[in-house]
Design a protein around this nucleic acid. Structure first.
Lengths: 250, 250
DNA sequence: CGAAATTTTGAACCGTTTCAACGGACGTGG
DNA sequence: CCACGTCCGTTGAAACGGTTCAAAATTTCG
């Protein structure tokens, strides 16, 4: 590269600040925030649920849930990032999604987890047992509606991702991914013009159905074509969003 | 091919017989059957819902829902087959799923359909308006639980399909597809050892993220390798399920 | 029966993967 | 503080799986 800038990744010693700061250790605000996002949960349900909740602080590599294990907990991410994936016996991996603050895991009533979920950065989550969740849900049907709605959004995202995996070219995949990360960051109240790739190239590749080399090559070409500017190894400024949109297809 | 047998597709003049035969035109049994599959809906909810239901008879090519249109109806397929897909502007298509008798469409609370759904054979569906569905759901929370459960199964299937699209080889995809069709047929009470490809090779390809030529080639090689025997252009007998399983991976 | 659509098969091509090498960032221990 | 090993990202070159293009065979349907 022409300009060999010396980068430094963000220090990885402590969980990053929570966008909606919570009283450390107390999880009521977490449950409230998590549920209020859905817009329909009653205050009473929030109160009940937050009593049944514990906060976990995880470091990169910690496993929240393992494919095939009994699904006895529901999680809500409050800080950090999580990868959710499925494995084949020979090690091939498909990441089916990344979780960021505000996202849920484990809502499905299925008895076992169908995926493994692993922190990929210092991460904080709220955890409630499925049993306690079911008790509250039975009492407050609007909670179930709210989470059903969330779950449906997830299904729609999964269908969009099937289109990406089944029909898009490598360039279209990476462009779509960057725009998606940007939109999600904006929805969390962060700056949508700066995309932070909280995951490695390998993780990105396993999400996009590519190899890490292909992801790296495409990011490089986006840099030389002035669509992106690399701010650090894991964050990029979007210079030409319109070109990225065209490149993403649909 | 060595043996050039003369095949004949099943005649396509009338909707095939419904597995649980219903009084033609009357939809109460349909709603009952649809909901009872979930195992939790009360008789009262079934009664209420069936009053709000109409039966539609569709021919191949008829559209149930179009991507972007307001999602004001929920469907339950009682006979036939439906393809659900997303399109790119240049015509590339990803089929995100096929619907067979017993399957639902349109459960998501999202205001618009995120996909197009089209009959690919003579098909019968029960249709209820979203408005009437919401009314009943508000009154009978167990209905919502039951459909949430269905929807979660769909999400799990979508995640499994992402693994297929992102990481499996062409042979693994086709083998997985055949086993999946077989399992779904068995769940509907049909013979799981005979797989009916209700869709064209092109539809299969657009589901598997391949071209129709690749699908055809792989089916041919499965025939010559005695994993399958072709009973008609659209139905195959599974001769070696174990080999298919190995071939499907995971 | 004849036309249109679908399926099958072959051969050339190409986008992505695979294999390989190198460089930078970071943690560890001397 | 520097040497060392590891992990991650980048880049190049060769190989390959699946696509594209083309044509023929079969099936479907009016």
């Amino acid at each position: 590269m022409l300009d060999s800038i010396s980068y430094r990744r963000a220090p990885a010693d402590a969980p990053p600040a929570c966008p909606a700061p919570e009283d450390a250790g107390v999880c009521s605000s977490c449950a409230a925030r998590a549920l209020s996002v859905c817009g329909r949960a009653s205050d009473a349900a929030v109160q009940r649920l937050s009593q049944l909740t514990e906060t976990l602080t995880l470091k990169s590599g910690d496993v929240l849930a393992r494919e095939g294990d009994p699904a006895d907990a529901v999680f809500n991410v409050t800080a950090g990032a999580v990868r959710v994936y499925k494995l084949m016996s020979d090690g091939r991996r498909q990441i089916v999604g990344f979780l960021f603050p505000g996202d849920f895991l484990g809502l499905s009533p299925s008895p076992d987890y169908a995926y493994t979920a692993e922190a990929i950065a210092p991460t904080r989550v709220c955890r409630f047992t499925r049993k306690s969740y079911l008790g509250v849900a039975a009492e407050y049907p609007e909670l179930e509606s709210a989470l059903f709605s969330r779950s449906s959004d997830e299904l729609a995202a999964a269908q969009e991702h099937m289109l990406l995996l089944g029909r898009k070219t490598a360039g279209e995949r990476v462009a779509s991914f960057l725009l998606d990360l940007s939109a999600r960051a904006a929805r969390r109240g962060e700056n949508g013009d700066i995309v932070v790739l909280a995951m490695t190239r390998g993780d990105g590749a396993d999400y996009l159905g590519l190899t890490l080399e292909t992801v790296s090559r495409i990011l490089s070409s986006m840099k030389t074509r002035r669509l992106l500017r690399q701010l650090s190894p894991d964050s990029y400024a979007i210079l030409d969003r319109e070109a990225l949109r065209r490149m993403a297809g649909r």
